[in-house]
Amino acid sequence: MTPEMLPADDALMVALAAKDLTALATLYDRYGRLAYALAYRILGESEGAEDVVQDAFISAWRGAAGYRRERGNPRGWLLSIVHHRSVDVLRRKTAFRPAPLEVAEQRASDEDTAASAERNVEQQTVRLALQALPEAQRRTIELAYFGGYTHVELAELMGVPLGTVKGRMRIGLQKMRRALEGTRA
């Protein structure tokens, strides 16, 4: 997303809060594809991803009046709803167990390869920032965000203390932030 789009997104949120269906349609046109891709990436199947995206957009529609700009931009707010709901669904699955690390890694690798043709500059920037991290920090971030693992599950899965998981997450995100700021400056 470019900074120039922010006012338009903010205006959409105002219209959404006023129950303007056209605004909801525009919001979907703008972010529906990314929302679906994120849900699919986390859940690994289309039917669950559809349900999550529908629930997320309806939640945004109904909760737009309570949206506060200072807590994040509309895109981040919407995608955080998609992310939270996807992870909730993943964790509710009765058969859900932490997958072996190599399985989760393989799934990420397959999807990234398939997406290479469509990756834009922003995607490249984020990906490079993540790839530049030490493997342990990168895995911690990926497995938490895309795999839905809690820090307790991560500690068990990776065989490290809870404090190590927390430290890897913090340092990894700090490094990514510096890298992204450097690119965008």
């Binding site: 990314l34 891709a37 992310h83 997406a115 995607q123």
Partner: peptide, 11 residues
Amino acid sequence: VVDALPDMVAM
């Protein structure tokens, strides 16, 4: 940073 993570997902 976290809001940027979806950008690396395959469309």
